[in-house]
Design a protein around this nucleic acid. Structure first.
Length: 205
DNA sequence: TGCCAGGCCCTCTTTAGGGCCTT
C-alpha cells in the first residue's frame, strides 16, 4: 500500500531550539496519489505569536487561546499518521517541529521525511524559485484555501508531490515513484542523476 | 521591535562564503 502523509506546520518562528512553537498542523493522507483523509488543527502552546507571524499567517493569539493544548493535538496527529512515511516542503523545517512537539507530548517521531524542495531542485533546476507558491504557480497547480495556513500549504505540497511523481513516470520511466524512491532521489547529487535514473528507471514503452 | 536555525547547494570552493527555503 503506497501511502504518504503530507504535513505542514505554522509556527511562531523558525527555530524550535530557540523556543519557537507550533501554532497549527495539517496533514493530508494520500494513497497512490489520491487524498484519502485530512487532519488539521490549531494548537495552544502557551506562547505569544509575534505580530509578523500573525500578519503572515492570519493566526492570532485569540485563535490559539481557544485551541486545544499542543500536546493533545500532537497526540492526535501522531495517531492519524501512524507509521506512514511523510513529505513536506522544506522537510528539515517541518521535521524539526514534528520531533520537538511530539517530544513535548512524550511521543517518539520515527517517520522518514522526504522533501519537495530537494526533489524540485533535482527535477526542475529551471524553476524561477523553489518556494512552494512559486512552484504551484509555475506548474499551474490548483490552490485551495489561504496560503500560509497549514491545510492550504499541505494541499499545495500534495499537488506538487503529484506533479513530481507524474514527471518521474512520464519523463524518467519510473514505474513506481514511492516514498523509498523519493528518499533515494533526494539523497542523490545533481551530477549523479543521469546514472541514478539509468540504474532505477523501468522502461514504459 | 527585531532578531534567532539548520540543512542543502552552488561556486569566483574544498583551509569558504553566501543564497535558498521554512515561520
Amino acid at each position: 500500500m503506497s501511502r504518504i502523509a503530507v504535513i505542514d506546520f505554522e509556527t511562531t518562528g523558525i527555530s524550535p531550539g530557540m523556543g519557537d512553537r507550533a501554532t497549527e498542523v495539517a496533514i493530508v493522507l494520500t494513497e497512490r496519489g489520491r487524498v484519502v483523509d485530512r487532519f488539521q488543527s490549531l494548537m495552544n502552546a502557551g506562547v505569544r505569536i509575534p505580530p509578523f507571524i500573525t500578519q503572515l499567517t492570519g493566526i492570532t493569539n485569540a485563535m490559539v487561546a481557544s485551541a486545544p493544548p499542543a500536546e493533545r493535538v500532537m497526540a492526535e496527529a501522531a495517531r492519524f499518521v501512524g507509521e506512514v512515511p511523510m513529505v513536506a516542503h522544506n522537510a528539515s523545517f517541518d521535521r524539526r517541529y514534528w520531533v520537538a512537539e511530539l517530544a513535548r507530548a512524550g511521543l517518539p517521531a520515527c517517520q522518514p521525511f522526504a522533501c519537495t524542495v530537494l526533489l524540485s531542485r533535482r527535477l526542475y533546476p529551471e524553476a524561477p524559485s523553489h518556494k512552494l507558491g512559486t512552484l504551484v504557480d509555475h506548474f499551474q497547480l490548483p490552490r485551495t484555501g489561504q496560503a500560509h495556513r497549514a491545510l492550504a500549504d499541505a494541499e499545495m505540497a500534495h499537488e506538487l508531490l503529484g506533479r513530481i511523481q507524474h514527471d518521474l513516470r512520464a519523463r524518467h520511466g519510473v514505474a513506481e515513484p514511492d516514498h523509498a524512491f523519493l528518499m533515494a532521489l533526494q539523497a542523490c547529487t545533481r551530477a549523479a542523476l543521469p546514472k541514478f535514473f539509468r540504474a532505477r528507471a523501468v522502461a514504459t514503452t
